[in-house]
């Protein structure tokens, strides 16, 4: 199922009239957390230094927000729409390939 189709089904738009919303706010499908962007909560930001990265993938399973995408068995740059800036990945990286800086600097 494409993201667009999925989105139509499961998202109840904000400020939907009470007559049209679901009873008790039931969300009538699953797998929609991705539509809720949590990146704006970030105070600190991880920076991936690709040249220093050995692709050991130790960072990937430690991210509590699934914000380190993997493609062809290799990590990609951070998904900043969802990364909350907890810094766990930076701490865990054995090759100093993740900087952790103040957001907006």
């Amino acid at each position: 199922m494409s993201d667009a189709v999925k989105k139509d089904k499961c998202i109840i738009e904000e400020h939907t009239p009470w007559q049209e919303t679901t009873l008790g706010g039931v969300v009538t499908s699953s797998g929609n957390a991705q539509y809720y962007k949590t990146g704006g909560w970030r105070a600190m930001k991880p920076i991936w230094k690709e040249d220093q990265c050995k692709q050991c993938l130790l960072c990937w399973p430690t991210c509590p927000d699934s914000s380190i995408p993997i493609k062809d068995k290799k990590r990609q740059d951070f998904d900043y729409d969802h990364c909350k800036g907890c810094g766990v990945c930076a701490k865990v990286c054995p090759f100093n390939a993740i900087d952790f800086v103040v957001e907006g600097e």
Binding site: T21, G24, G25, V26, S30
Partner: peptide, 25 residues
């Protein structure tokens, strides 16, 4: 056949409408 969530977080742009609907019940 229907994966759902019951009792999710209801932020200010939703909560009021759910309470209004509850009052209608």
């Amino acid at each position: 056949d229907e994966a759902i969530a019951i009792g999710p977080l209801d932020i200010p742009s939703y909560y009021f409408e759910h309470k209004r609907s509850q009052a209608q019940g």
